[in-house]
Nucleic acid binder design. Structure first.
Length: 306
RNA sequence: GGCGCCGUCGCCAAGUGGUAAGGCAGAGGUCUGCAAAACCUCCACCCCCGGUUCAAAUCCGGGCGGCGCCU
């Protein structure tokens, strides 16, 4: 399997298309928001017409009202990789969601799924008695998690308690059971990177393009279709800020600036994630440049030979 | 030429004698079923020189720079 990773707006999609064409590949999306149908412009999906007949998987696979998760991604991704191998083609995992990539390549522990009712109760406790109260609870039942999780990180504290209550074992105790869903797959990863200033420029341009292509109309249409504002993908980058604008929180110019800024922050967090990935080759990019494509092509040729 | 106001981190900005708030930007990081999310950490001896004082970003004098008004 080949992975094309990197921060937002670095040209991953273009590079992946070129490599897929060259090596008989099929693309598997690794972007947490592109799985949702109808969220096209803000996620910068490659339009079907631009896919050059390369099959794209795990894009537009669920309704926006569904809560897609890393666990589901790991199993969907593993199944897709198996299918592609059966067809004798090369799976190309492409995207910027580090957590999904890690869930796919290293696996998650085989524990209980999210229990919405329990989570709501725990969140209530956190809201009423303060987040740090949750942290004290975790410290009592799972000291190892309490030292690992930051005291105000409500999401992870809730998860730690959830697992503990549901299984009777601390979260940390489950980690040993973790296995990769693609343990038998040979994984090679390329990450594209660009100087921060360059990312910034590209992000600004992309945000302008997204507005020009009708980002706001896309959102209005989704709302008209009955998608609630609380739907998962509305809570993420681009859509959250654009939605706030539609509600009158700030004008469009300020919204564009804010979205670009959030994109820059996001790019930094992505980089942090990929820096820790083992067996990853960095390519100074942009992904669409002939030099990058050539360098990547050479890498893949080497890997195929060995 | 005169008078007045001002000069604190890349930007905004609090602080008027007791040893530099905060916000934005920037950087580093955490991450095992919400991750485009959530959370954490770091980031200034206050334009320069001299003086007063136990102690000055804060007071005084002089430079330099900016802004405004007047001639």
């Amino acid at each position: 399997m080949l992975a094309i990773l990197g921060p937002t707006a670095a040209g991953k999609s273009a590079l992946a298309l070129a490599l897929a064409e060259r090596f008989g590949g099929e693309i598997i999306n690794c972007d947490s928001t592109a799985v949702y149908r109808g969220f096209d412009i803000g996620t910068d999906k490659v339009a079907p017409a631009d896919r050059r007949d390369i099959p794209h998987h795990l894009i537009d696979i669920v309704e926006p009202t569904v809560e897609y998760t890393a666990a589901r991604y790991a199993s969907d991704g593993a199944a897709t990789i198996r299918d592609i191998h059966q067809r004798g083609r090369l799976p190309l995992v492409v995207g910027g969601t580090g957590f999904y990539y890690r869930a796919l390549t290293r696996g998650l522990f085989p524990g209980p799924a999210a229990d919405q009712a329990l989570r709501r109760r725990l969140e209530d406790v956190g809201a009423r008695r303060g987040v740090t109260f949750l942290h004290r609870m975790v410290r009592r039942v799972d000291p190892a998690s309490a030292t690992r999780i930051q005291p105000r990180d409500a999401k992870r504290l809730v998860r730690a308690l959830e697992v503990c209550f549901l299984t009777g074992r601390p979260l940390t105790a489950h980690f040993a059971d973790t296995t990769s869903p693609i343990a038998n797959v040979d994984v090679h990863a390329i990450a594209v990177r660009l100087p921060a200033a360059e990312i910034s420029r590209r992000v600004t341009r992309r945000v302008d393009e997204q507005f020009a292509r009708g980002l706001l109309d896309e959102i209005r249409m989704l709302l008209a279709r009955g998608i609630p504002e609380t739907a998962r993908p509305f809570g993420g980058l681009v859509y959250r800020q654009a939605l706030e604008h539609l509600r009158g929180v700030r004008d469009e110019a300020a919204t564009r600036t804010l979205i670009a800024q959030e994109n820059r922050h996001y790019a930094r967090r992505q980089l942090v994630w990929f820096r820790k990935e083992p067996n990853l080759v960095w390519l100074d990019g942009p992904g669409e440049s002939p030099a990058t494509i050539e360098a990547a092509t050479r890498l893949v040729q080497d890997w195929i030979q060995t």
